[in-house]
Design a protein around this nucleic acid. Structure first.
Lengths: 208, 208
DNA sequence: GTCTATACTAGGATAGAC
DNA sequence: GTCTATCCTAGTATAGAC
C-alpha cells in the first residue's frame, strides 16, 4: 500500500529537518535520523536513495510557504497594508517552520550549493518583483524614498532571525521557547520600524 | 624562531576561516586548508593539534571585535548617537570580517556547540547591559518605549545579514561584491529605521 | 621545524536474506 | 516492502624520516 510509503516519507522528512537544522548537512548522520524515526538505516536509503536527496526534500518543504509569503505584495495596493502583512507572514513562517527555516538559512549562508537552479531563479524573480512594487509606491508618493533592496534585506533578516538564531534569543530572553506574545511583540516592533521609516505609519504606531 | 610559528598560525587561521565560512565545520577538509595555505596537512595538526582547535581559534578571532562594538553604548549619553554608532560598527564588522562573522553566525545557529562557556557568558552579560541602557533611556524619556531585547535582535539581524547572507545579497543586487557605497546605504537605512522607530531621528533622516 | 607515508575510524551506501 | 550484515571511501590524525 502506497500509504505506508507516504507516511514513512513524511516522518523521515520531519525528523531529518530537525537534525539538519540542528547540526547542518555534513554533520548529520543518517543513522541518527533513522534511529530517531524508529526505522532501520537502510529504510532511509530505500525511500530517498541518497542523503542529499533527503536533504533536498527537506529544503523543498519550506519553498512553498516562502513563495506564498509575498502574496500581500500583489493583493494590496497600499504599502502600509502590504508591508505589514508581509512582515507578519514572515514572522509566522519563523514560528511555524523553525527547522526548515533554519535549514534554508544555512543553505543560503553557504552559497546555496544544493538549491535547485529553478527554485533560486524563482525566488530571485520574486524578490525583483517586490523591489519594483516598492519602487512604484515611492514613485507614486505613497511612501518615502528608501532603497527597496536594502529594505527587503532588513525585513528578511529581522523576521528570520527568530528562527535562525533562536539559541541567542533564548539566551537573552531567558526563555527556552518563545510564546505567542513574544512573536507578536517582535512583529509589532518590526512593523513599526519599517512603516515609520517609510513614512507610512498608521496612527497607532505612535505609542509611548 | 618563534616568528615562523606565529606567521604560519596566522596564515592557517586566515585560510581556515574562509573554508569554515564557506562550507561549515563538518564539511571542511583539513587537506583543503593545507593545500590552500601552501603547507602540508601534517603542519595543520602540528600547529593546532585537532581540527576543532583550529576552528575554535577562528571563532575566537571574531570575539574581540564583537565585544568591542558595543563601546558606543558606554561612551555616549544620548541614544541617537549611541545607536547610530553601534549600528555603523556592526556593519563595519560584517564588511571587514565577513568570514569570521559567518563562522560565528553558523556557530550560533547550531546552538553554539563549540563556543567556550566563558565567552558566551560574556556576550550574554553585554547584551543584558545594552538592554538596561536602552531601558534607562526610555525611562528618562529620551526615546519612545520599545522592547529593548527585540530592538537588539533587529539591529543584530539587519547588520549581520550583509555578512551572513552575502550570496542572497549578491543575487538580488546583481553585484559579486558590495562596495563602500552599498555598505553606507545599508547603514544609512538601518540607522534611519531604528532612530525613526525610537522617536529620536535627528532631522536629516527625513529625506525624500 | 617540515613533510611523506600510513594507521584508523566513521559513516554513506548496498547486497541479499526474509 | 523490511531489515541485517557488510563493503568501501573519505577524512582525521600520527609516526617517523629528513
Amino acid at each position: 500500500m502506497a500509504k505506508i510509503r507516504e507516511r514513512n516519507r513524511e516522518l523521515i522528512i520531519q525528523v531529518a529537518s530537525e537534525f539538519f537544522a540542528d547540526k547542518g548537512f555534513a554533520a548529520t548522520k543518517t543513522i541518527d535520523i533513522a534511529n530517531s524515526a524508529g526505522l532501520p538505516k537502510a529504510n532511509i536509503y530505500y525511500y530517498f536513495k541518497t542523503k542529499q536527496n533527503l536533504y533536498r526534500s527537506v529544503l523543498e518543504s519550506i519553498i512553498e510557504p516562502l513563495l506564498q509569503s509575498s502574496a500581500p505584495f500583489h493583493e494590496n495596493d497600499d504599502p502600509a497594508t502590504a508591508l505589514e502583512e508581509y512582515i507578519r507572514a514572515k514572522i509566522r513562517i519563523s514560528q511555524t517552520h523553525p527547522h526548515a527555516s533554519k535549514v534554508f538559512a544555512s543553505e543560503i549562508m553557504h552559497g546555496a550549493p544544493h538549491l535547485p537552479e529553478d527554485i533560486s531563479a524563482q525566488m530571485l524573480e520574486q524578490a525583483q518583483q517586490m523591489c519594483e512594487r516598492i519602487q512604484s509606491w515611492i514613485d507614486q508618493g505613497l511612501m518615502t524614498a528608501v532603497p527597496p533592496q536594502h529594505l527587503l534585506f532588513t525585513i528578511w533578516a529581522s523576521t528570520q532571525t527568530y528562527a535562525d538564531f533562536d539559541w541567542q534569543i533564548s539566551q537573552v530572553t531567558g526563555k527556552e521557547k518563545l510564546d505567542q506574545d513574544d512573536y507578536d511583540q517582535a512583529a509589532d516592533l518590526i512593523v513599526k520600524l519599517i512603516l515609520n521609516g517609510c513614512g507610512i505609519s498608521t496612527a497607532e504606531e505612535e505609542t509611548a
